[in-house]
């Protein structure tokens, strides 16, 4: 009894920690331009300045204030992560629902595609896609979504498959419920918690992928995300000078913090959902 309880308490702590961190980054993303000392696009000082009172994280090769860039990056990174995850989860979820509902050939085709999507190695695919697509936020969102839709699709499909065989759904059909009602009243409420947990997970992976994408050159040249900051810094030889300590580490840490926080929150949600499921099952 005590081990699971201790585990649960640890999960709770992590979830709260993740939530608080996300809240902080959320505020930065929303009100960053007001909080940042400089405009991220403005030449705030000489290039390659080391950290000082005026520029807490120094300046980059053009003279942008790195701290301001970092704060601006929060918005871009989070936006890409959330958008990509939303597309992946909603799109994948819909495909999964269709596969599970229609069954038969539709299901077979969709699910084989999912299988391939799950086993194709990510990084090579990223590189291939990067060479075909234009640089920019839209491409990034699209690519990340394409990489991540399969898992939600698989989960939703199996849920819908089992739901449609559940007696309470059959019961609803016997008093005349059609597909729209069943989806609204029985499928969505049952799948929603799962999807939300999935969404949170996918966001964290999406943010990570964004870094990778920027690194292979798909980053938006104008609106800098944390990923493109790291890529730029590496290009400008930050690792050769000491500049990596304030130019690469901070965005790296931010990415790590956000990714971990999303993962923690996702863990907490899943745990809660599992408990609810267990309660439902034992009646």
């Amino acid at each position: 009894m005590s081990r699971p309880r201790r585990l649960r308490r640890a999960t709770r702590t992590l979830t709260i920690l993740g939530g608080v961190t996300l809240a902080v980054f959320g505020v930065l993303a929303l009100f960053g331009s007001a909080l940042a000392p400089f405009d991220a696009g403005e030449r705030a000082g000489r290039p390659f300045l080391e950290p000082s009172r005026d520029h807490l994280l120094g300046t980059d090769d053009i003279g942008h204030d790195i701290l301001s860039e970092l704060i601006g990056g929060a918005r871009v990174s989070l936006l890409i992560g959330l958008a990509a995850a939303a597309i992946a989860v909603v799109g994948g979820g819909l495909l999964g629902a269709v596969a599970g509902y229609r069954r038969g050939a539709v299901d077979a085709v969709l699910m084989r595609t999912v299988d391939y999507a799950l086993v194709v190695p990510t990084i090579p695919l990223l590189i291939v896609l990067a060479s075909y697509l234009e640089r920019g936020m839209r491409s990034q969102i699209l690519v990340v979504a394409v990489l991540l839709w399969a898992e939600p699709a698989r989960i939703v499909r199996s849920q819908v498959l089992s739901l449609r065989e559940r007696t309470h759904v059959l019961a609803a059909r016997t008093f005349g419920a059609g597909a729209p009602y069943l989806i609204r009243r029985h499928v969505v409420p049952a799948v929603a918690p799962l999807l939300i947990a999935q969404f949170v997970r996918v966001v964290s992976v999406a943010i990570l992928f964004e870094v990778a994408l920027s690194f292979v050159g798909l980053g938006d040249p104008v609106r800098r995300s944390w990923g493109s900051m790291i890529q730029f810094a590496t290009d400008r030889g930050a690792f050769l000078t000491g500049a990596w300590k304030w130019w690469i580490v901070p965005p790296g840490l931010c990415v790590a913090a956000v990714v971990c926080s999303f993962a923690f929150v996702g863990l907490g949600l899943e745990e809660r959902f599992d408990r609810r499921l267990a309660r439902g099952a034992q009646g």
Partner: peptide, 10 residues
């Protein structure tokens, strides 16, 4: 139905 726990949504 036979099993009310199955026949009624949790």
């Amino acid at each position: 139905f036979q099993d009310p726990f199955e026949a009624v949504s949790p």
